[in-house]
Simulated scan of single mutants.
Amino acid sequence: MTTNARTVLKVELRPLVGSRFQPTGFPDLGAAEFDSGDGRALLVESAQSMANRLEAATWDDARADQAEALAGLPYVKVVDGSGAFLSSSRLEAHRLASAYVMSGTIDGVKGEDWMRGRLGLQAGRPLDHRAVARACFALDPVSLVHGVFFARKAWPWQPKIARAVTSFIEAYDVRPAVSGGVKRDVVINEAKDGATAEGYGTVPHHRVEYTAGRITAYFAIDHSQVRSYGLSKAGTALLTALIDYEIGSLLDGGLRLRTACDLDIVAVLGERPDTADAAGRVAKLLGECGDELAPVTTVTWTGRAKG
């Protein structure tokens, strides 16, 4: 479903092998079950996790660099004092607001001060949301797709950009599938005197997976928010192409969320993005809005400061 304000994509899924699957778990909660109009339901993958998975489509772990199809797109790279790669704005939970960026240095300037200057924040002046968006776009356009929050108490403002894409996976008509297993020790069979804590002994354990009548992944793209950034026509189109590239790459690569949660696509309700087409659009649009984009920014991080 696509409107001028939103595009919603629904992807029907099923376990690739068998009928059981393992949902995401939360501390002190376990699997997130809830009641729905379709009976007992389950959160298979959260919006936060899906944002990370979509963003990971732009990154090549083997190269410690962004995907070759996106070459030329800016991002922030974090290195140590010797220049060895540590992280990037594509890998950090807070993206451009990462602690490694804020406490590192850029051309000899502390990252926090450097970033505040790039965002144009001034005491006694209103927060210019479009200026903040343009600054984030210049440093890493992907940060405008998945959001960023600069929670800096020392700043006159704490700019926040919400996700432009929200995705999650739910299962309906779910039932627990309880099983068990044993960690077997062929040398020391008894688990006593602290042996278990040290990894010795034969220890039985239980396991809870689920079956479902239906599993659905949802993707909602907020076009109104993307337009609100006030970028050029080419810049806005570049963000849309990036979103299509991420969703297409994620679906093409398979949804192996965990060892016991490997999902296969049954049907796509809506227009499935073409990854190759999206990559071609990104390459073309990079040339058209090059003046709005900075080169890759390198931050040097040498360790935590005391306190």
Score class of each variant (00 low, 15 high):
Asp244Arg: 11
Leu96Trp: 13
Ala276Gln: 12
Leu86Ile: 12
Pro273Ser: 10
Asp113Met: 10
His206Phe: 12
Val296His: 01
Leu238Glu: 09
Gly108Asn: 02
Glu190Ile: 13
Asp252Leu: 01
Gly290Met: 06
Pro141Ala: 01
Ala93Gly: 04
Ser232Gln: 09
His129Ala: 09
Ser143Asn: 01
Ala279Met: 02
Arg184Gly: 12
Ala67Asn: 10
Thr3Met: 09
Gln48Lys: 12
Val186Arg: 15
Ala177Asn: 11
Tyr172Cys: 02
Asp185Gly: 03
Asn52Thr: 13
Arg152Trp: 02
Arg118Asp: 06
Ala41Val: 07
Val145Trp: 07
Ser46His: 07
Asn189Ile: 08
Thr2Trp: 08
Ser167Tyr: 04
Glu33Cys: 09
Gln48Ile: 07
Ser36Pro: 04
Glu92Arg: 03
Asp140Val: 04
Leu127Val: 08
Pro273Val: 08
Ile265Tyr: 07
Asp274Ile: 00
Arg227Gly: 05
Thr236Lys: 02
Asp28Ile: 01
Val182Trp: 12
Gly18Arg: 13
Met1Gly: 12
Gly104Ala: 11
Leu144Asp: 01
Glu288Met: 08
Leu286Glu: 03
Gly248Glu: 09
Ile106Phe: 03
Asp60Gly: 02
Glu170Ser: 07
Arg90Asp: 05
Asp252Gln: 03
Asn52Lys: 09
Glu45Gln: 07
Phe21Lys: 02
Phe21Thr: 02
Ile215His: 00
Asp61Leu: 06
Met102Ile: 05
Asp252Met: 02
Ser82Asp: 15
Arg256Ala: 11
Gly25Met: 10
Gly253Lys: 07
Val145Glu: 05
Arg304Leu: 05
Phe85Thr: 02
Glu292Leu: 06
Pro74Phe: 10
Ala305Lys: 11
Leu9Lys: 01
Pro74His: 11
Leu263Asp: 00
Asp274Thr: 03
Gln122Asn: 04
Asn4Leu: 13
Tyr200Met: 15
Ala197Trp: 10
Tyr210Asn: 03
Thr297Lys: 07
Met1Thr: 13
Cys136Val: 03
Ala62Cys: 09
